[in-house]
C-alpha cells in the first residue's frame, strides 16, 4: 500500500514569488534547468516554477511502509517525520545533534534525524519508535521497550524514543558487553531526568537474554 502525507491545509506559496528564480541565481538556474521553466519564470509564472524546484520527489520506506513524498530539500528527516507525517514519537531536543532524542534507524543504523535532510535518504528504510512494537494497543513490544518499562528506564519519557532506538543500535553494534561499554556507547543520548543507570540495566538485561534486536 502506498502512503502519502496526511492532508494538511497548505495554501501558501501561491502568491509568493521565489527570489532565486527572479534574481541572483537566475544564471545558475539557467544552466541547470529546462529552458521551458526559465521561460515560465520570466513570464511571471514563477510560482509554479518555484514549486517545481522547491519540491523534490522522495521515495522512502518508513516503518515498513513505502511513502512517495514531495519535500523541500531543506526539510530535515526529523521535521518530515514529525510535522508532515505525524510520526511525533521521534523528538526534537536540541536540533544540533547534541542530545540524541531524535535518534532513528536508517537501513538499520542509528542516526540523528535532526542532522540529516530527508532528501538524502532516497530509497532507504527508516525505522522510528512507532515501528518497533507489533500493531495495536496490546501488540507485542520490542524486547528493549519491555526492558525499559521493567527497569523504569525513563521518567518524563521525552528522551525515551531516542534512547530506545539508540539502545537497539548499541546492542546491534555489539557494544553492550559491560555496563561501562554501554555507558560509553550510549553517551550521545542525554536523559535530564537521570534514568541512566536504569537504562544501562535494561540494555544489559536484553543483552544477557540474547533476544534478537
Amino acid at each position: 500500500m502506498q502512503h502519502n502525507e496526511p492532508d494538511r491545509n497548505n495554501n501558501a506559496g501561491q502568491e509568493a514569488r521565489r527570489d532565486f528564480l527572479k534574481q541572483s541565481t537566475l544564471l545558475t538556474a539557467l544552466s541547470l534547468t529546462p529552458s521551458v521553466v526559465v521561460q515560465a519564470a520570466e513570464k511571471h509564472l514563477d510560482e509554479k516554477a518555484a514549486a517545481y524546484f522547491e519540491q523534490v520527489t522522495l521515495k522512502l520506506t518508513i516503518n515498513g511502509k513505502p511513502y512517495t513524498l514531495s519535500v523541500e530539500p531543506r526539510v530535515t528527516l526529523l521535521d518530515l517525520l514529525r510535522e508532515r507525517l505525524n510520526l511525533t514519537g521521534t523528538k526534537k531536543g536540541c536540533d544540533y545533534g547534541q542530545c540524541g532524542a531524535c535518534t532513528v534507524h536508517i537501513d538499520g543504523r542509528r542516526t540523528l534525524s535532526c542532522l540529516t535532510f530527508a532528501v538524502m535518504h532516497e530509497g532507504q528504510a527508516v525505522t522510528t519508535i512507532e515501528g518497533l512494537a507489533e500493531a495495536g494497543p496490546q501488540g507485542k513490544l520490542h524486547p528493549v521497550q519491555e526492558a525499559f518499562i521493567r527497569h523504569d528506564g525513563f521518567q518524563c519519557g521525552y528522551c525515551t524514543p531516542g534512547q530506545i532506538m539508540s539502545a537497539i543500535g548499541c546492542l546491534r553494534e555489539d557494544r553492550a558487553n559491560s555496563p561501562d561499554e554501554i555507558r560509553e556507547y550510549m553517551s550521545g543520548n542525554i536523559c535530564r531526568c537521570g534514568a541512566y543507570n536504569n537504562i544501562v540495566d535494561a540494555i544489559a538485561e536484553v543483552k544477557k537474554g540474547g533476544q534478537k534486536v
Partner: peptide
C-alpha cells in the same frame, strides 16, 4: 511499573 510506560516506550 508505570501505567503510562507503554505510551512512553512506543512514542504514543
Amino acid at each position: 511499573s508505570r501505567v503510562d510506560g507503554r505510551l512512553k516506550v512506543t512514542g504514543g
